[in-house]
Structures are given as structure tokens and as C-alpha cells.
């Protein structure tokens, strides 16, 4: 029964992932597809995130944080923004081929963005400790089993 459940789960996951892979371009296009089909998206609203390469007060040059990792110019509602090199900027705007006219932006400062990863690191050993303190994997039965030497104290 459990093998059937596991096989069913994996099958459903693969189905969902394949569906996402096939329909992604039409339903939720990424920048690689948008830039490859620039005429199709000209004048349409898009959103993406990029890191600031340069900023001159009226236009910002962003390195896109997803494939094709290219450079794109953003103008529009950024005039009052305080941007510095390395800051992460989420942009919602109108695509004009190599230029996006921003309608809305959201900025995460460079050091705050880096801090997200440093803040995440302690979680990994903590989760591993909590989990493997209680469970061990039995490779013969292919199953997690409770460790026998439980002290009775629960973390």
C-alpha cells in the first residue's frame, strides 16, 4: 500500500512538473522567453528581478537574476528610488525591448539580500539535528524508524 502511495505521489509530481515545464512560457513566461520573443511582449506588462549594475537617477541598469542573466535598462518610476550597485530590484513594468518602463519597483538592499542566506544557514544543522536525533533510516526496510535510545526529553 505504501509503495503504491509513494509511486502515486511521484507520478503526480512528475505530471505537475511536466505540465509546468510545457505551459510555463504561455502562463508565466520568464525573461529568457520574453527576450527571445521580444515583439510578442512589446507593450505588455512583465515582472522580473535584477541586481543594480549602474544607476544615474533616471535609468537603472539591471542584471537579470534568471536566465539569460543579461542586462536590461529600466526607466519610469525609479526617479525617487535610492539605489546602489548590488541592490536587488523587483520590477513590474511595460516591456519595450531592452528597456522596461517601470510602474512599480521594490528594492532589497544588497546587504539585506546577502543576510537572507546567512540567516538561513543555521536552520540546516538545526533541522538535521532535530530530525536525526529522533529518526534513523533503515536501508533494508527503506523506512524511517524511531531511534531506540530516546531519553524521554523532547526538544
Amino acid at each position: 500500500m505504501k509503495v503504491a502511495i509513494a509511486a502515486f505521489s511521484i507520478s503526480m509530481l512528475l505530471l505537475l512538473m511536466s505540465y509546468s515545464y510545457i505551459e510555463h512560457d504561455e502562463k508565466d513566461p520568464d525573461m529568457a522567453y520574453i527576450m527571445k520573443n521580444s515583439e510578442k511582449f512589446r507593450g505588455k506588462e512583465i515582472d522580473f528581478a535584477g541586481r543594480v549594475v549602474s544607476f544615474n537617477g533616471s535609468a537603472v541598469c539591471l542584471r537579470i537574476m534568471e536566465p539569460p542573466y543579461g542586462i536590461i535598462n529600466v526607466t519610469g518610476k525609479i526617479l525617487n528610488a535610492s539605489l546602489h550597485k548590488g541592490d536587488v530590484v523587483e520590477v513590474l513594468g511595460i516591456y519595450e525591448v531592452d528597456n522596461v518602463v517601470a510602474e512599480k519597483i521594490f528594492v532589497i538592499k544588497s546587504f539585506e539580500y546577502s543576510l537572507i542566506f546567512f540567516r538561513s544557514l543555521p536552520a540546516i544543522p538545526f533541522v538535521a539535528y532535530l530530525f536525526f536525533k529522533k529518526w534513523k533510516f533503515n536501508f533494508k526496510k527503506l523506512r524511517f524508524e524511531e531511534r531506540e535510545c530516546q531519553t524521554g526529553r523532547r526538544m
Binding site: 505504501k2 502511495i5 509513494a6 502515486f8 511521484i10 509530481l13 505537475l16 527503506l142 524511517f144 524508524e145
Partner: peptide, 14 residues
């Protein structure tokens, strides 16, 4: 997606 991942992992427990 998370439901199916959880279902798969849960199948590894008694």
C-alpha cells in the same frame, strides 16, 4: 506539489 512531496516522504514512515 507540497502535498505530494509530503505524501511521498510520509510513506517512508511506519
Amino acid at each position: 506539489g507540497t502535498i505530494f512531496v509530503a505524501l511521498f516522504i510520509a510513506a517512508l514512515f511506519e
